[in-house]
Structure formats: C-alpha cells, structure tokens
Design a protein around this nucleic acid. Sequence first.
DNA 1: TTCTGTCGTAGAACGGTGTTCGTGTCTACT
DNA 2: AGTAGACACGAACACCGTTCTACGACAGAA
Lengths: 250, 250
Amino acid sequence: MSPTPQERRAARHQLGTGSSAPAARRGPSGGRKKPITVDAIISTAFGIVEEEGYEALTMRRLATALETGPSSLYAHVVNKEDLDELLLGRLCAEIDLPEPDPAIWRQQIVGICTQLRDQYLRYPGISQAAFAAAPSNLDTLRVSEGMLAILLAGGIAPQTAAWAIDSLSLYVNAYSLEVSLANKRLSRSDDDWVVSRDELLRRFAALPDTFPQTKRYAAELTAGTVHDRFDFTIGLMIDGLGVAEIPREA
Amino acid sequence: MSPTPQERRAARHQLGTGSSAPAARRGPSGGRKKPITVDAIISTAFGIVEEEGYEALTMRRLATALETGPSSLYAHVVNKEDLDELLLGRLCAEIDLPEPDPAIWRQQIVGICTQLRDQYLRYPGISQAAFAAAPSNLDTLRVSEGMLAILLAGGIAPQTAAWAIDSLSLYVNAYSLEVSLANKRLSRSDDDWVVSRDELLRRFAALPDTFPQTKRYAAELTAGTVHDRFDFTIGLMIDGLGVAEIPREA
DNA sequence: TTCTGTCGTAGAACGGTGTTCGTGTCTACT
DNA sequence: AGTAGACACGAACACCGTTCTACGACAGAA
C-alpha cells in the first residue's frame, strides 16, 4: 500500500516508520495532464508564497493553481500544518552548510543565519510557519547539526553552543517575520500610519515631554536599514558567546 | 460628536487629533444591562485569551461573551487589528518601568524583559499580535522609552542602545510566541510527535550517523527549561552590549 | 409635550477559510 | 474480463472577519 500522508509525516519525524511499503507508486494519474504529487504541491505552494505572500497560500488557492479542488490536496497532505512543515523542510534543505573551519567560525555562523533570513524573506511570511514547527523535523535538524558542528569547532562549550543555536534560530525567524509583515503593511499602503523615516522622526519630535530620551535620540532610533539591525543583533549574540559563562546546572 | 473608533486609533498613534470633540458621551445604553464600552471589550477579550488562548479570540466569540452580535463591536473598534493593538497597549501599560539606576542597569533591563515575557505568556499567543503592531503606538513607545533610559544610564552608546531595544523586544516577542505555541501543541495532546524530553533524547539517539554532533550532545541540546534558555539569550545580548562596536555608519 | 436627528445595537448576509464525506473514475493486477 | 483499490473531486459543514441595513432609544429644539 502506498504510504498515507500520515505515514509520510511520521517518517519525516522519524517515528516508527515500521511497515511502510517500498513506496513504489504505480502511476495512476489517469486522464490528468499532470498527476498531483507532493512535490508538485510543494513547488506550486512556493510559487504562490513567493509571488503573493504566505497569507495568500490557502488550500483553495493552491488547489486552483493545480487546477483541481481543495479536497484533492488532502490525499497527499495531512492538513495545512503538514503543508507548512513540508515547505519549511524544503526550505531548510536548500541551506548550504559549510565544512566547519575553526578560523572563520563566526563568519560561517553568520552565513547560515543570512541564508536562512534570505530564504525566509524570499517567501514572505513563511517564517510564521517556522514558529509552529516541531523541532524533530529531519530537515531542520540538519541545519541545527551544521550550526552545532561549526560552533563546537569554534571552541564554544557544548551547552552554550546548543542554546545559542536556539537563540539564533529564533531570532532569525522573528526578524524575517517582522520584516515580512512590515513589507506587507507597506505594500497595501492605502492604510494610514505606515510611515517613512521622516514621518517617524516628525512624530517622535511631537511627542510629549514624558518621552525625553526618545525625542532626544530619535535619529539613532530610526537609523539604519533593517538589515543593519539584523547584522547588529547576530553580532551581539555571537560576540556574547565568547564571554558567556556556562549555565550553572548540568 | 463622539470620536469614532478611527479617530481614537489615530489619536493612539498621535496623528492629527485635530477637531476631536471633548468626547463627553451621553449615556445612550438604553435597555442594556451593561453598555458596551471599549474598556469592557478589552477586559472581556483579555479574559478569553487568558482562558482559551489568542486563537480563540474571534470577533464572534468576543461578541458572544458580551451577549451581543459581532457587528456591535465595530462601533467601538475599527477591526480586529485595532483590537489587537488595544490589547497590546493595555498589556504594555501594565509594565512597571523602574527609575534608571546605573549600578544595576543590567538587572533592570532583564526585569523589563521578564515582565514582558510573563505578560505575553499570561495571555498565550498574544505576542503574535505584537509582531504586526506598528511601532508608533504610545503605550509601546512608553516601554521603549523606559528601556532606552536605562541603557543610556548604563553607559551604552545611544546607537547601540537604540538597536539593542529592538533586538531585545523582538526576541521577547518571539520567545513568548514559541512557548505559547508549544504549550498549545502540548495541551491538545491527541496529536502525536509532541514529545517529552526522554522521547526527544531517544529520537536523537536513533538518528543516522549523518548527525554526529546532535547524537553526541543530545543531552546538552535538550537540557534546561525554556526559561533557562530565555535567561541565557537575554544575558547573551546584554553581555554583548558592553563590547559591541558602534556600527560603522552614522 | 411632541418631533426630529443621531447614535448605539443587532440580525442577516457576503465572501472567505480549513476540512470531511460520498461518489465517481481510472489503473493495474488476477 | 473482471475486480480491487487508489486517486480525484463536487458538495457540504462549521467557522472566520466584515458590512449592510433596519430598529430603537435618547438629547435637544419647537
């Protein structure tokens, strides 16, 4: 029997794959021009997200793009959460993991974070799905493994390295999501209070005196591109790694 | 004329409040037991989120709790995004901002972050709304002002301080959202692959040899409570602040 | 007192979402 | 040739945010 979507999902999380037939599918596909495959679903979904954003990725929209009805998707995918996981998996699979080089471990870590960020931003809003993703997915685990290897090669203590991976991943996700949402707000600019830097400066200047520091350092608060802030924060965390004390327990 | 919800929202973002009558509302309220006020809406919404999570906060659910229909809410609130903003505003208003003390600026910053985290976790999932929130809300600006004052008192360079606030806020949001989502997954445990630490360890041990570091340091990777990781990351960032170089431009 | 205008309340409906049920339809094996 | 089973799909369910429209009660003016 061909694996049900549930079985595939379990396999992705390396639960008991147990029976799991050889999965050699014979092509039914009938009168269809192109049979619906999981891969076709994922590719089409990426296309939609890339062009219209993650919020546009609905089962109906996806089904329409595949020239079928919504229910047809559920033969290949457990539910939308499962689809998100598949997307995230393929996204992580694209990440290039360098061979750990102790001399440049910082650049290597920054490089991976930047790759992740760019992938997330290429498919706007998809990082939202990354928040809900379980940590036992094989593809995401592969990236973790790569980062862990680099940090360890860099001489970081295992416990510090393990937690740093969490911190970095979470921040990259959050950053990407925030930028995606900001871009979305900016694109549908029929709304008000999506403001340029000038407008923000003007508003800070107009604040009551209860906000002395904000008024005084408005320039600094609004300075830099978003990517500058990304580099700053990643640097902050990595620089902290050298001096981070080993957590008290374990 | 009483301010429309749109006007109130604009005022919250301190746009041109312009005309804006004295806002002395005469009590219509008619045969209702309790008239629907913005405050009542917010309080009820907080109650729902506290008990059932942010995803349960729908306009219909909220209206039902207020013993009315969905459309009645739109006389007081522009839309759901506006409601989110109101909730976030009240949440931020609860944050206690200490008088800056240069001797303990680190503890003070950590304290604010912890307060934010606890508030976010008290109302599970509400940090999702924080991602979409515009940065010009007065209540959120108040917290930023407080953090900025503390960092400046601690001798941090203005530009570094400004960006650090961004980093810290974003991380606290992300952390809270992740923990909330994890708890949600854990509560509806009818699903599989929500795993205990033991199960996670077992799974790491069963990984193929492509994951040598993950297998070797499985203990470290799964060590600590989530709050330990929070403290670790915040500490990482704050420790990095001392040594952070001023960004190259401006 | 009566009228009128205005504002909060609410029912019904619109277009959208994820998901499921039952039925068709075609392939591949016996 | 016949049959079993997997795939596809239309229709439907329950829910979402939001809007249209009518209704009803109060304030102030005549």
